[in-house]
Design a protein around this nucleic acid. Structure first.
Lengths: 225, 225
DNA sequence: CCTCCAGAAAAACGAGTGTTTAAAACATGC
DNA sequence: GCATGTTTTAAACACTCGTTTTTCTGGAGG
């Protein structure tokens, strides 16, 4: 054991419980009792619950950014004089995402955590992720920009987020959906199977025809704030 | 006031706070103090916090299902001998979704709530929504099935949920995204504008080519449970 | 041997939670 | 005007929460 063992026991238990129930709904007593560790250990080793949450994310995202950067390096080396095709970029991202939790036991946990990071309040988390991992995301979007030169910038921005929603929503709610699918269609869906299904959909969505230009005169309703 | 006024003050305040911070993060004291109502009023009028959460949803979803059923009735009346085109179905759904919170003040709140219903633990909520509003959703998916006869059932199931993820994720996280978009692309995005952008993307995604058949022999990794 | 100190353990702290109780205020019908 | 049922109020209850404090344990180094 490189780490004090108590630390990793806490992290292992915390990530599972967080993924199952969310952050606010998971108490430190839940974590420490299931990890068979003293309650005070969390505050001793991590300082606070917030810091524990961030540590859980870092354990996934640090290896991810590392791998993703090198994967993009290789990709750029292979396409020195032409742009990297969109399919290649998406494929690389998918492969990297799938590779990270292979060491650990669950991609599902990783995805649930990402979904929670977006949907739960936890402002500190969004800030932490933005600061820590915004750079690699910016690099990726820049490559996507080069791969889709015909798309207006704003349109590409929105479509990327549309697809982000697709992936995170589907994979983070996978268990519930999998149950329904298994019941109605007698098929057991694996994560890799879902990624296979996602690929053509995402590509088609990114390459969809542009929406009609906005008509003047029609004033939008005021749903601000 | 048709209702006791206390009841609607609670609901008005609760939906906003829930949408902003989630269910667990919003206490009854938050709600009652902001609504300038006695703490015990929630338990008196609704019975429990869980029941209050469900009541907040019902106030949006009951009118929605009503409108959506009649909208689908009209649609079916217009297409007695041919199938309703997919575009028409999506258009109708979008229109109905947009119509509901027009009476109230915020579509954003409605979408945030839907997003929370999926991502937060709150098992009772998912069950309540499923039982109460599963029927209209089933009717819609059946019409989508008739509109896309070439799509295998399981494929359509997943693609519908992909698109559900797109819409809920985008519209429920709209505020944050809108800020970024406004900063980077100097454009002020309205909800209707987003729906306009969503339409071609969703249609293209639903009509995307089928994924390649699974190769035998490649055994998927065991990411179960 | 004794000191030192990181780590684990138990206990307590104060704040905040949903819910219940019991009394007060109000409205309605006779 | 009094009794009736409904709504509002303040107070208390019984927990649970994250965090802090204090004590205890077990090796390492002088």
């Amino acid at each position: 054991m490189a780490q004090s063992d108590t630390v990793s026991r806490i992290l292992d238990t915390a990530e599972v419980l967080f993924a199952e129930r969310g952050f606010a709904e998971t108490s430190l007593r839940n974590i420490t009792s299931k990890a068979r560790v003293n309650l005070a250990a969390v505050n001793y080793h991590f300082g606070s619950k917030k810091a524990l949450i961030q540590a859980v994310f870092s354990r996934y995202l640090d290896p991810f950014t590392l791998r993703f950067h090198t994967a993009l390096d290789e990709l750029e080396a292979r396409y020195t004089d032409s742009h990297i095709p969109l399919e290649e970029l998406l494929e690389t991202m998918a492969t990297t995402v799938l590779a990270v939790p292979a060491e650990r036991n669950s991609l599902k946990v990783f995805m649930r955590l990402l979904g929670l990071a977006y949907s739960q309040a936890q402002g500190h988390l969004r800030r932490h992720i933005q600061e820590q991992y915004g750079e690699v995301f910016a690099r990726f979007t820049e490559l996507v920009r080069q791969a889709t030169p015909d798309l207006p910038d704003s349109e590409r921005f929105w479509r990327l987020h549309f697809m982000l929603g697709t992936v995170i929503f589907t994979l983070s709610g996978l268990d519930a959906l999998r149950d329904i699918a298994a019941k109605d269609y007698q098929e057991q869906v694996t994560v890799r199977d879902l990624v296979r299904r996602l690929r053509p959909v995402v590509v088609a969505a990114m390459n969809a025809p542009l929406p009609p230009a906005v008509e003047e005169g029609h004033h939008a309703n005021a749903n601000a704030s």
